[in-house]
Structure formats: structure tokens, C-alpha cells
Simulated scan of single mutants.
Amino acid sequence: MPTSEPISPAQARFLFEHAPLPMAAVEGSNHIVRYINPAFCRLMDLAAVDIIGKPFCDLLPEPDDCVAVLDRVYHSGRPSSYSTPEGTEPPPIFTSYSMWPLITEVCTAGIMIQVIEAESLHGKTLAMNEALLLGSLRQHELTAAADSLNGLLQAEIRDRQQRELDALMLTQEISHRVKNNLQIVGLLIDAEISRIPAEYKHGYVATQARIGAISKLYDLISQSSRGSSIPVDSYLRQIADSMTASLLGNASGIEFVVQAEALSIDPDRAVPFGLMVNELGTNAVKHAFPAGIGRVTIVAKRIDDQMELTVVDNGVGMPPKVAAVAPGRRGSDYVAIFVRQLGGTMAVSAVEGTGTLVRIRLPLLELASPVGRLPRSTH
């Protein structure tokens, strides 16, 4: 006799369709058949429409004892079983029944009946079917637990995404305020420049350009939706615009041209990168164009796992001996420091009268994309 707790009608309907043994569910005190599984139809050799709606007892050749058990299960709400006595003639269609009450919130609504055909298989089949029933119920429990865990996981993912969004918004807000403060510093330096003699202005102008390069970085961070990388092409164009405004003015015959692939650089390295570009551009403006006319081209592209940055001008160039010590002679000591800080290498190529080319190779910082962190694009 089964010892498991009564199961619900919804669980019973699922079990009917998958149980290997004939099963039926009856309703009410008259035990009217409401559901049957395919195995029961095969046993009776009848279609479902010929069985459903009839009293279960009408299907039995000698129903008296079975009806008594059905009544007892219905009124007591406790499972039971019934077996046809041995030696019954003629042999019955089925010899054993196992019965479980279908419990609603307040009472017994019906009974689920499992039929066993052969007495010799009675014990073994009962144990097997009970194991299948319990296994099916356990599967329901596991499915419900999996659904619950999935709901918790989804909630955690949403919470983590919200925290990422909050952190990004905070970073953008802080960057915006830093940019505004740097612009104020730049305006204060500009006011000082207007009050001092021309021969002393160079240092102020150079400092103002450096502050402008950093300000452009924070401007990009405040506008970025990625939060963890800076687009190199936009960054270089903003630095070029800043140098044009601070170093050249509207009447200058010198222009900056930017040609950059869609690369990114992480914020930790963006400041020395921007200052390095600013120094190279400033050096070109100071030394390459004594006539005040020319072009400085800034190129950034990817080569394997490195970024190649070239700054080339079409100015007067340098004699080879001077080019060999160019960083010191052209005011590029800062550039050499920034290149080392970025883990890169630098080469200067210049011939007198044909311009100067500075080529710098930097490692691309390729980072993985763990959960909770946005990816850093490098292409």
C-alpha cells in the first residue's frame, strides 16, 4: 500500500499521461470516470470517449468489493488497495487496484486508480509504479526548485546591472565636474597670459595645452556609455582641437589632421597618452614651421597586438645628428617619460627640409569581460 502523501489533481493529470500502467481518475461519490491514460484505454480495448463519464464500477465484472474500497478511500481521504481473491472464475480483466485520494483544499474530490493486470506481477509492479510516481513527484519538486533559483539568479543579475549603471552614472558625473574644474583652471591661466610679457607666455601656453588635453579626456569619459574605455579617434580629435585653440588661433596657417582607426584605450593610460600627443603636437608647432604654414598629421592604427601612433609634420625637419637626440633638443623629454610609462617604444625619423616623423608603438591593453564589467573594445 502506498505511503506517500495525497497528491493534487494537477499532479495526477501529469502522471496519467506518462505512467506505464493503466490509470484512471474518478470524481464524486458515484466514482464517475473523468480522466484515463492511454495504457488504460489499451487494457479495456476502448476509446476514451467510451469510458469517460461512466461510473468506474460499470467497468468491473464483480464490482462489490472494489466499490467498498473506493467508498472508504473517498470518505476517509486515505489511500488503499484491493486485490481480487485467488481462484476467481472467470479470471477478471484486472486483479489489483491501488487507490489515492485527490484532495482539494477542504475535501476529497475524487480518487486516482492504478490497475494491475497479473497477480503474479502484483508486488513487483506496485513497487515499481510507486517508485515511478514518487520519482515524478520528485521531478516536480526539482523543477519548482530550479524555477525558484532561476528567479533568484535573474533578480541578482538585474541588481548587478543596476549597480553597474549607477557606477557608470557616478563616473560620468565626477568626470563632468573634473572637466569643468580643469576648464576653470585653463581660464585662469589664460587670464595670466593676457597680463604678462610675450617672452614669458610660452610656459603658460604649454601648461594650458596640457591641462586642455586632460580636460578633453574627462569630457569623453563623462559622455561615454561604455564607462571602461576611451575611443582613441574621438580623443585625438579633441586634443587636436584643443591645441588649435590654445596654440594657433584662428589666423594660423598650421593645421592638425587626425587619421585614427576605431581603437580604445583604458582610462588609466589615457592621461599619459593624451599628454604625450599634446607634447608631440606642441613641439611640431614650435619648431617645424618658422614661416607659420604647415600640417601636422596624427595617425593611430592597430598592428597585431599593438597600437602604432605616428605624428608627422611637413616642416623644416632636422639634420640627422639632431634627430638622434630629438627628445632633448625638441623639448620632448616629457614624451620619452610618457612612452616609458605606457610601456612603448619610440623612433624619430627626420631629414632637414622634409619634415619630422615620430613613430610610437604601444601595447593594446586587451581585457576579458567578466560578469558585472563592461568589455573594452580594441577594434
Rank of each mutant, 00 (worst) to 15 (best):
R340S: 08
M318Y: 07
I51Q: 06
L43V: 03
A323I: 04
T378H: 06
E130C: 11
L121D: 12
R210C: 11
I230M: 14
I113M: 05
Y97D: 03
Y200Q: 08
K301W: 08
V322K: 05
L149I: 12
L137R: 05
I103Q: 15
A25F: 13
A324H: 02
L188W: 05
D241Q: 15
K321W: 00
I337Y: 15
S224E: 13
D159Y: 12
R361Q: 14
V316P: 00
P327C: 02
A245V: 11
A191L: 07
F16V: 03
T171R: 15
S228A: 08
A260K: 10
I337F: 15
G317E: 04
Y204V: 00
P6A: 02
I303V: 14
G77L: 00
H122P: 02
V26H: 15
N129C: 05
E279P: 02
E366H: 02
T378R: 07
G331H: 11
P370S: 15
C66R: 07
R359H: 12
S225L: 10
L280P: 03
G344T: 02
R237S: 08
V299T: 08
S215D: 01
I193Q: 00
I298F: 11
I36S: 03
P38Q: 06
V335K: 12
A213V: 06
S175C: 01
P101N: 03
L132M: 06
P61M: 00
M44N: 08
S377Y: 14
A19W: 01
V348C: 10
P320I: 01
L149H: 11
S81H: 13
G186V: 01
D159R: 02
S29W: 07
V69Y: 01
A245S: 09
P363H: 02
P327S: 01
L132P: 04
T104D: 09
L217E: 04
G186E: 03
D147W: 15
N180P: 00
